[in-house]
Design a protein around this nucleic acid. Structure first.
Lengths: 164, 164
DNA sequence: CCTAACCTTGACGTTGAGGTAATATTGGCG
DNA sequence: CGCCAATATTACCTCAACGTCAAGGTTAGG
């Protein structure tokens, strides 16, 4: 078996993962991880001296977010990127938010957050409504069919009676 | 290929369109039309003796359905195909449905329709719920931000007063 | 220091969904 | 009939999103 690494010379407290472990844990291939990095979807992770990538939990959360969005929305990676970046901006604001900051600064941050969130809503909005009412239509048809079915059973029963 | 059935002895009361007209009317390129045909998303349309394709209104509706689904769901064409085929089955049933048919036959048809519709729901179901609650979450965050903003304005007003 | 297992970059291959170009027919009009 | 725009078929090109392979560097246990 593989030797288990002692791969941390960064911060000993945080659990850093090498690319292979991330791949295994998330079901994403190593190639895809490098590819996402290349495309700017994942920020370049920290490395050990040898150059091996070391992913943080935050990196992994981001990765999972990407995959989720990709599955969910079927958008091209460029748009997925926009989405995750927007998330990141909001996280950032949240982290930097100090109640004792200047009001004008806080206001600016909140405005930014609002802008970003609105953009996200814009990206998914149309899709959401369309998919929902497609679903509604299907469900309606389904219950129509069930209705027909029960009608049918009822009438077959009555004809049976009529025959006797 | 053998000549399965005659192409253009269909009455010309129905408006048939050539590929170029379809392309123009729908915004889909000719290439894409042929491609979809190749992939089985569109059934081979009727042809004139020379071999030119002649599309019916039904063909066009199907095409538009395909494009809609593609936009909407972001599924691969293979799945889109499943979807439209399911639609087609239902149309078919609807067309063949005669109230004077045998009950057992009608029942079978309805059961088929139900099965197919359930499959369609299955295909979009998960996606629909996921996207909806993503949207909900975003909207919630948005209103939270707006809340913060009004809080902020309120407190700035009060400090202004306090200063004076 | 050696070696197995892991990782690196680089380059080329593949698949899905078409675009583009070349060549050959066809359809309709004067 | 002759001409030319529209169409058919075939074949290669592209772009995204990875897969795969090669050649070599890195890490840690023995």
């Amino acid at each position: 078996m593989a030797h288990k690494r002692d791969a941390k010379d960064v911060a000993d407290d945080e659990p850093y993962l090498q690319i292979g472990e991330v791949a295994e844990r998330t079901g994403v291939t190593q190639r895809t991880l490098r590819f996402y990095e290349e495309k700017g979807l994942l920020k370049p992770p920290t490395r050990m001296e040898g150059g091996f990538r070391l992913y943080s939990e935050a990196d992994i959360r981001r990765l999972e977010r990407i995959r989720h969005l990709q599955q969910l929305l079927g958008f091209p990676l460029a748009q997925i990127k926009e989405m995750v970046e927007a998330d990141e901006v909001k996280m950032q604001l949240r982290a930097e938010y100090r109640p004792e900051a200047e009001a004008s600064e806080k206001k600016a941050q909140i405005l930014k957050a609002i802008e970003v969130t609105e953009r996200q809503l814009e990206l998914i909005g149309e899709k959401a409504t369309a998919i929902v009412d497609m679903q509604a239509k299907l469900e309606e048809r389904l219950s129509t069919f069930h209705g027909w079915l029960t009608d049918l059973e009822a009438s077959s029963k009555s004809t049976a009676k009529a025959k006797v």
